[in-house]
Simulated assay, not measured.
Amino acid sequence: MSHSSRTSRVAGCTLVVIALGAGVTACSSDGNPLSATPYDAAEQISFNGPTKAGKKADPDKPLEVTAEGSEGRITDVTATDAAGRHVSGELSADGLRWHSTSPLAANAHYTVRVSTEDDDGAPGRRVVTFDTGKPRTTKRLNVTFGPQAGKYGVGQPITADLNQPVKDKAQRAIVERGLKVVSSPVVDGSWHWVDDKKLHYRPKDYWPVNATIQVRSNLDGIKISDRLWGGTAKPLKITTGDRIVAVADGAS
Protein backbone atom coordinates (compact mmCIF):
# COMPACT_ATOMS: atom_id res chain seq x y z
CA MET A 1 0.00 0.00 0.00
CA SER A 2 1.13 3.48 -0.58
CA HIS A 3 0.74 5.38 2.63
CA SER A 4 2.15 8.46 4.24
CA SER A 5 3.15 8.44 7.89
CA ARG A 6 2.57 11.14 10.46
CA THR A 7 4.53 10.74 13.68
CA SER A 8 4.11 12.25 17.13
CA ARG A 9 5.57 11.43 20.50
CA VAL A 10 3.09 9.72 22.83
CA ALA A 11 4.42 8.32 26.12
CA GLY A 12 7.84 7.73 24.60
CA CYS A 13 6.42 5.78 21.65
CA THR A 14 6.07 6.67 17.96
CA LEU A 15 2.53 6.68 16.57
CA VAL A 16 2.20 5.95 12.85
CA VAL A 17 -1.07 6.83 11.13
CA ILE A 18 -1.63 4.71 8.02
CA ALA A 19 -4.10 5.78 5.33
CA LEU A 20 -6.36 2.73 5.67
CA GLY A 21 -9.04 4.56 7.61
CA ALA A 22 -7.49 3.65 10.97
CA GLY A 23 -4.32 4.42 12.90
CA VAL A 24 -2.07 1.70 14.30
CA THR A 25 0.84 2.06 16.66
CA ALA A 26 4.24 1.39 15.17
CA CYS A 27 5.74 0.18 18.41
CA SER A 28 4.75 -1.88 21.40
CA SER A 29 4.94 -0.94 25.07
CA ASP A 30 8.64 -1.77 25.02
CA GLY A 31 9.30 0.66 22.13
CA ASN A 32 10.28 -2.11 19.67
CA PRO A 33 8.50 -1.66 16.31
CA LEU A 34 9.02 -5.34 15.40
CA SER A 35 6.87 -6.43 18.36
CA ALA A 36 3.93 -4.23 17.34
CA THR A 37 0.58 -5.65 16.26
CA PRO A 38 0.81 -6.18 12.47
CA TYR A 39 -1.02 -3.65 10.33
CA ASP A 40 -3.32 -4.66 7.47
CA ALA A 41 -1.14 -4.80 4.35
CA ALA A 42 -4.05 -5.36 1.95
CA GLU A 43 -3.26 -2.23 -0.07
CA GLN A 44 0.48 -2.83 0.00
CA ILE A 45 0.44 -6.32 -1.51
CA SER A 46 -0.95 -7.63 -4.80
CA PHE A 47 -0.96 -11.11 -6.31
CA ASN A 48 -1.72 -12.53 -9.74
CA GLY A 49 -4.64 -14.69 -8.61
CA PRO A 50 -8.34 -14.08 -9.28
CA THR A 51 -9.86 -11.04 -7.59
CA LYS A 52 -13.54 -11.77 -8.29
CA ALA A 53 -15.67 -14.25 -6.35
CA GLY A 54 -16.24 -17.50 -8.22
CA LYS A 55 -13.15 -17.08 -10.41
CA LYS A 56 -10.47 -19.76 -10.26
CA ALA A 57 -6.73 -19.49 -10.80
CA ASP A 58 -4.99 -21.30 -13.64
CA PRO A 59 -2.87 -24.07 -12.06
CA ASP A 60 -0.54 -23.87 -15.08
CA LYS A 61 0.64 -20.42 -14.00
CA PRO A 62 3.02 -19.73 -11.09
CA LEU A 63 1.82 -17.73 -8.08
CA GLU A 64 3.29 -14.22 -7.79
CA VAL A 65 3.11 -11.81 -4.85
CA THR A 66 4.27 -8.22 -5.36
CA ALA A 67 4.89 -5.29 -3.01
CA GLU A 68 3.23 -2.13 -4.34
CA GLY A 69 4.70 1.33 -3.90
CA SER A 70 8.03 2.18 -2.33
CA GLU A 71 7.34 2.22 1.41
CA GLY A 72 7.45 -1.47 2.26
CA ARG A 73 8.79 -4.88 1.37
CA ILE A 74 7.83 -8.54 1.66
CA THR A 75 9.62 -10.48 4.40
CA ASP A 76 7.95 -13.89 4.15
CA VAL A 77 5.31 -15.80 2.14
CA THR A 78 3.70 -19.11 3.10
CA ALA A 79 1.32 -20.83 0.68
CA THR A 80 -0.44 -24.11 1.52
CA ASP A 81 -3.40 -26.02 0.15
CA ALA A 82 -6.21 -27.66 2.12
CA ALA A 83 -4.22 -30.91 2.28
CA GLY A 84 -1.32 -29.13 4.00
CA ARG A 85 1.00 -29.22 0.99
CA HIS A 86 3.40 -26.26 0.89
CA VAL A 87 4.26 -24.33 -2.24
CA SER A 88 7.98 -23.63 -2.61
CA GLY A 89 8.97 -20.15 -3.69
CA GLU A 90 11.70 -17.53 -3.99
CA LEU A 91 11.77 -13.99 -2.59
CA SER A 92 13.74 -11.35 -4.48
CA ALA A 93 16.67 -9.73 -2.69
CA ASP A 94 14.89 -6.37 -2.53
CA GLY A 95 11.75 -7.96 -1.02
CA LEU A 96 9.50 -6.62 -3.77
CA ARG A 97 8.50 -9.91 -5.43
CA TRP A 98 7.90 -13.53 -4.44
CA HIS A 99 7.09 -16.26 -6.96
CA SER A 100 6.35 -19.97 -6.62
CA THR A 101 8.95 -22.48 -7.81
CA SER A 102 6.85 -25.63 -7.38
CA PRO A 103 3.63 -26.28 -9.34
CA LEU A 104 0.19 -25.49 -7.95
CA ALA A 105 -2.30 -28.31 -7.67
CA ALA A 106 -5.45 -28.34 -9.77
CA ASN A 107 -8.88 -28.23 -8.10
CA ALA A 108 -7.27 -27.09 -4.83
CA HIS A 109 -7.99 -24.40 -2.22
CA TYR A 110 -4.97 -22.30 -1.23
CA THR A 111 -4.24 -19.98 1.68
CA VAL A 112 -1.41 -17.49 1.20
CA ARG A 113 0.01 -15.66 4.23
CA VAL A 114 2.21 -12.67 3.43
CA SER A 115 4.38 -10.84 5.98
CA THR A 116 5.63 -7.32 5.23
CA GLU A 117 7.66 -4.56 6.82
CA ASP A 118 7.37 -0.81 6.22
CA ASP A 119 10.18 1.75 6.23
CA ASP A 120 9.83 2.24 9.99
CA GLY A 121 10.16 -1.50 10.67
CA ALA A 122 6.48 -2.00 11.53
CA PRO A 123 5.22 -5.47 10.53
CA GLY A 124 2.25 -5.97 8.22
CA ARG A 125 0.16 -9.02 7.30
CA ARG A 126 -2.10 -10.05 4.47
CA VAL A 127 -3.95 -13.36 4.07
CA VAL A 128 -5.34 -14.35 0.66
CA THR A 129 -7.35 -17.44 -0.28
CA PHE A 130 -8.15 -18.71 -3.76
CA ASP A 131 -9.11 -21.85 -5.66
CA THR A 132 -7.43 -23.36 -8.69
CA GLY A 133 -9.37 -24.69 -11.65
CA LYS A 134 -9.30 -27.98 -13.51
CA PRO A 135 -6.22 -29.02 -15.51
CA ARG A 136 -6.41 -28.56 -19.25
CA THR A 137 -5.98 -32.30 -19.83
CA THR A 138 -7.84 -35.36 -18.58
CA LYS A 139 -4.72 -37.54 -18.58
CA ARG A 140 -4.01 -38.47 -14.97
CA LEU A 141 -1.12 -40.37 -13.38
CA ASN A 142 -2.61 -42.82 -10.88
CA VAL A 143 -0.41 -44.83 -8.51
CA THR A 144 -0.91 -48.28 -6.98
CA PHE A 145 1.32 -49.12 -4.01
CA GLY A 146 2.45 -52.61 -3.05
CA PRO A 147 2.72 -55.08 -1.48
CA GLN A 148 -0.70 -55.55 0.10
CA ALA A 149 -1.15 -54.48 3.71
CA GLY A 150 0.35 -57.03 6.11
CA LYS A 151 3.55 -58.10 7.90
CA TYR A 152 6.74 -58.67 5.91
CA GLY A 153 10.46 -59.26 6.28
CA VAL A 154 12.95 -56.46 6.82
CA GLY A 155 14.11 -56.64 3.19
CA GLN A 156 10.67 -56.07 1.63
CA PRO A 157 10.66 -53.26 -0.97
CA ILE A 158 7.77 -50.84 -1.43
CA THR A 159 6.47 -50.82 -5.01
CA ALA A 160 4.68 -48.08 -6.94
CA ASP A 161 2.96 -48.99 -10.22
CA LEU A 162 2.00 -46.11 -12.52
CA ASN A 163 -0.81 -46.20 -15.05
CA GLN A 164 1.14 -43.88 -17.41
CA PRO A 165 4.81 -44.06 -18.46
CA VAL A 166 7.17 -41.35 -17.21
CA LYS A 167 10.48 -41.10 -19.09
CA ASP A 168 11.69 -37.53 -18.64
CA LYS A 169 14.23 -37.05 -15.82
CA ALA A 170 12.65 -33.84 -14.49
CA GLN A 171 9.17 -35.39 -14.54
CA ARG A 172 10.47 -38.45 -12.71
CA ALA A 173 11.86 -36.15 -10.02
CA ILE A 174 8.39 -34.64 -9.51
CA VAL A 175 6.92 -38.13 -9.13
CA GLU A 176 9.58 -39.17 -6.61
CA ARG A 177 9.04 -36.04 -4.50
CA GLY A 178 5.31 -36.73 -4.41
CA LEU A 179 5.58 -40.35 -3.22
CA LYS A 180 6.10 -40.31 0.54
CA VAL A 181 7.42 -43.20 2.65
CA VAL A 182 7.52 -42.79 6.43
CA SER A 183 8.75 -45.50 8.81
CA SER A 184 8.76 -45.78 12.58
CA PRO A 185 11.58 -46.11 13.64
CA VAL A 186 12.89 -43.70 10.98
CA VAL A 187 15.35 -44.97 8.35
CA ASP A 188 16.77 -43.44 5.17
CA GLY A 189 15.77 -44.83 1.80
CA SER A 190 15.15 -43.90 -1.82
CA TRP A 191 13.06 -44.69 -4.91
CA HIS A 192 14.55 -46.60 -7.86
CA TRP A 193 12.97 -46.72 -11.31
CA VAL A 194 12.63 -50.32 -12.50
CA ASP A 195 11.12 -49.13 -15.78
CA ASP A 196 8.97 -46.24 -17.06
CA LYS A 197 5.93 -47.38 -15.07
CA LYS A 198 7.33 -49.02 -11.93
CA LEU A 199 9.35 -47.81 -8.93
CA HIS A 200 10.83 -49.65 -5.95
CA TYR A 201 11.60 -48.03 -2.61
CA ARG A 202 14.22 -49.64 -0.38
CA PRO A 203 15.84 -48.51 2.88
CA LYS A 204 19.57 -47.83 2.86
CA ASP A 205 20.18 -51.11 4.73
CA TYR A 206 17.13 -53.01 6.02
CA TRP A 207 13.86 -51.97 7.63
CA PRO A 208 14.02 -51.98 11.42
CA VAL A 209 12.58 -54.97 13.29
CA ASN A 210 8.88 -54.57 14.13
CA ALA A 211 8.66 -51.31 12.18
CA THR A 212 5.56 -49.60 10.77
CA ILE A 213 5.86 -48.26 7.23
CA GLN A 214 3.26 -45.88 5.77
CA VAL A 215 3.16 -44.87 2.10
CA ARG A 216 1.08 -42.14 0.47
CA SER A 217 1.03 -39.97 -2.65
CA ASN A 218 0.92 -36.15 -2.68
CA LEU A 219 0.64 -36.04 -6.48
CA ASP A 220 -3.12 -35.58 -6.74
CA GLY A 221 -3.71 -32.48 -8.86
CA ILE A 222 0.01 -31.75 -9.31
CA LYS A 223 1.27 -30.91 -12.80
CA ILE A 224 3.87 -33.40 -14.03
CA SER A 225 3.98 -32.31 -17.68
CA ASP A 226 1.85 -30.24 -20.05
CA ARG A 227 -0.34 -33.27 -20.75
CA LEU A 228 -0.05 -35.22 -17.49
CA TRP A 229 -1.32 -34.41 -13.99
CA GLY A 230 -1.12 -36.39 -10.78
CA GLY A 231 -4.11 -38.58 -9.96
CA THR A 232 -5.32 -40.69 -7.08
CA ALA A 233 -3.51 -43.29 -4.96
CA LYS A 234 -4.69 -45.41 -2.05
CA PRO A 235 -2.29 -45.13 0.92
CA LEU A 236 -0.53 -48.25 2.20
CA LYS A 237 0.53 -49.41 5.66
CA ILE A 238 2.69 -52.46 6.35
CA THR A 239 4.73 -53.76 9.29
CA THR A 240 7.89 -55.83 9.65
CA GLY A 241 8.55 -58.81 11.87
CA ASP A 242 11.77 -60.29 13.26
CA ARG A 243 14.96 -59.96 11.26
CA ILE A 244 15.97 -63.15 9.48
CA VAL A 245 18.75 -62.69 6.90
CA ALA A 246 20.04 -65.57 4.76
CA VAL A 247 23.30 -65.07 2.84
CA ALA A 248 24.14 -67.29 -0.13
CA ASP A 249 27.13 -67.46 -2.46
CA GLY A 250 25.79 -67.33 -6.00
CA ALA A 251 29.04 -68.68 -7.42
CA SER A 252 28.80 -71.93 -5.46
Rank of each mutant, 00 (worst) to 15 (best):
R113P: 02
R113S: 12
R113Q: 13
S115E: 15
T116V: 08
T116S: 11
T116I: 08
E117N: 05
E117W: 00
E117L: 03
E117P: 07
E117C: 04
D118N: 15
D118W: 11
D118V: 14
D118P: 15
D118H: 11
D119K: 11
D119Y: 09
D119P: 05
D119A: 14
D119R: 08
D120Y: 15
D120H: 15
D120W: 13
G121K: 09
G121C: 12
G121Y: 14
G121N: 12
A122C: 12
A122P: 11
A122I: 08
A122E: 08
P123N: 05
P123V: 00
R125N: 14
R125W: 09
R125S: 15
R125A: 15
R126L: 09
V127R: 14
V127M: 09
V128P: 07
V128D: 09
V128N: 10
V128L: 12
T129F: 05
F130V: 06
F130C: 00
F130G: 04
D131A: 12
D131Y: 10
D131S: 14
D131W: 10
T132C: 13
T132I: 11
T132V: 09
T132L: 13
G133H: 03
G133T: 03
G133K: 02
K134Q: 02
K134D: 00
K134A: 04
P135E: 04
P135R: 03
P135T: 03
P135M: 00
R136V: 04
R136G: 01
R136I: 01
T137C: 06
T137G: 05
T138L: 08
T138W: 01
T138P: 00
K139L: 00
K139N: 07
R140N: 01
R140H: 00
L141H: 12
L141W: 11
L141P: 04
L141S: 13
N142S: 07
N142C: 05
N142F: 08
V143T: 10
V143I: 15
F145T: 06
F145D: 06
F145S: 07
F145L: 11
G146I: 08
G146L: 11
G146R: 14
G146P: 05
G146V: 08
G146W: 12
P147Q: 05
P147M: 08
Q148R: 06
Q148H: 02
Q148M: 03
Q148P: 01
Q148A: 07
A149Y: 00
G150E: 09
G150L: 11
K151H: 03
K151M: 14
K151S: 14
